[in-house]
Design a binder for these strands. Structure first.
Ligand SMILES: [Zn+2]
Ligand SMILES: [Zn+2]
Ligand SMILES: [Zn+2]
Ligand SMILES: [Zn+2]
Lengths: 159, 159
DNA sequence: TGGCTATTGATATGTTATAACATTAACTGT
DNA sequence: ACAGTTAATGTTATAACATATCAATAGCCA
C-alpha cells in the first residue's frame, strides 16, 4: 500500500528522490521547473503536511521569490498539473506528492489534531464509485478521496 | 444504489418527504428547526445542485431572513451537523442530503458542466481505504468521496 | 534579429469563512 | 410569574482563500 506520512522513513532520501524525479519529468515533457516552482516543491516536501497557499507564500516572501498571492497560486497550479503536488480539498491546502511517478489515484489520511497528511494509493471508491457512476451514466474525470481522523501519535496524546 | 440527482424523479415528493423526515428527526432529538434553518433546507432542496453559502444568503436576504454571512453559515452548520445537508469540499458548496435517514457514508458525482450533484453511497466499498488506514494506525472519523466529471446530459451536449 | 509564447511582476478585487460581542428567545425549576 | 440558564440571532469586522487583469520580461525558434 505504501502509505507515507505517519511512518518514519528516510526523509532526506525521500525529498532528494522526489526532486530528481520531478526534474526528469520536466526534462522529458518540456516543462520548466523554474526557481519559484522548484523552491515551492521543496517547501511542500519539507515535511508531510499540507500547506496553505499563503503559508507557502510567506516562506517564498522571506526568500525574495515573490510576495503576492498569484506567485504562490501559479506555482501550486503548475505543481498540481504536473502531478508533483495535490490539493487537499477538505483543508484548502496543498501537499507534495509522496508517490511521484506511480501516483494514479491518490487518497489522503488527514490528522485533525496535528495536520499531518498521509498519502496512500488506493482504488477505493473506484469499484463502488465506478458502479454508481456507471449506473447513473456519469463519466468520472477526477476523484477526491480524503479521510479525516486521528493519526497514531495523536491517538496516544488524547488517550 | 439509489443515486439521486441525474435521473428524473418525483421531486415534489422528494422535497416533502425530506422535510418531513427532518422535522421528525428534530422532534426525536430535541433539535430546533427554526425558520432560517427550515427555509435554508428548503432552498437547498429546491434542486439537486450545490449552493454556495453566499448564494443561500442571497435568497435568505430577499426574504428578510438575514443578510450577514454568519446567518448562512450557522444555518448550514446546523443542517450539516444534523445530517440534513452535506458540504461538497471540491466546490466549497452545500447540498441537501438526498437519502435522509439512511445516509451513512455519502459520495458525490459532480458535473463540472452543469454543476448538478448526485449523491450515492460508499458504505459497502470502503474496504481499501479502511485497510490503508488500519495499516497506518489511522482512526477515520469522516470521509470525503467526490468524483468530478460529466453527467449524462452534459456528455451529450459536448459530444 | 524579430516574432512568438511562457513566465513573472504588480495591483486590485472577488469569494469563502470565522471571530467577537451584544441581544433576544426558549427552556427549567421555583 | 420569576430569575437563572442555555440556545439562537443580530451585527460588525476581519481572516483566509483565490482569481482577473494588464504590463514587463525571459526563453525559444525561425
Ligand atoms: Zn518523506
Ligand atoms: Zn500523489
Ligand atoms: Zn496527528
Ligand atoms: Zn446524504
Amino acid at each position: 500500500m505504501n502509505t507515507i506520512g505517519f511512518a518514519p522513513h528516510d526523509h532526506g532520501n525521500c525529498v532528494a528522490d522526489t526532486l530528481r524525479k520531478a526534474e526528469q519529468h520536466c526534462a522529458d515533457n518540456g516543462l520548466r521547473l523554474t526557481p519559484v516552482r522548484r523552491r515551492s516543491l521543496e517547501i511542500l516536501l519539507a515535511d508531510h503536511r499540507a500547506l496553505g497557499a499563503y503559508d507557502l507564500l510567506a516562506v517564498l516572501a522571506t526568500e525574495g521569490l515573490g510576495a503576492q498571492p498569484p506567485v504562490a497560486y501559479r506555482a501550486l497550479d503548475f505543481l498540481v498539473k504536473a502531478g508533483f503536488a495535490h490539493k487537499i480539498e477538505a483543508l484548502n491546502a496543498y501537499i507534495a506528492c509522496a508517490h511521484l511517478g506511480e501516483c494514479q489515484m491518490p487518497a489522503f489520511l488527514i490528522c485533525r489534531a496535528c495536520n499531518s497528511v498521509a498519502e496512500t494509493d488506493t482504488t477505493l471508491g473506484r469499484g463502488r464509485l465506478n458502479d454508481a457512476a456507471s449506473d447513473a451514466g456519469f463519466r468520472i474525470e477526477r476523484t477526491v478521496v480524503e479521510a479525516e481522523g486521528l493519526c497514531p501519535s495523536c491517538q496516544k496524546d488524547t488517550a
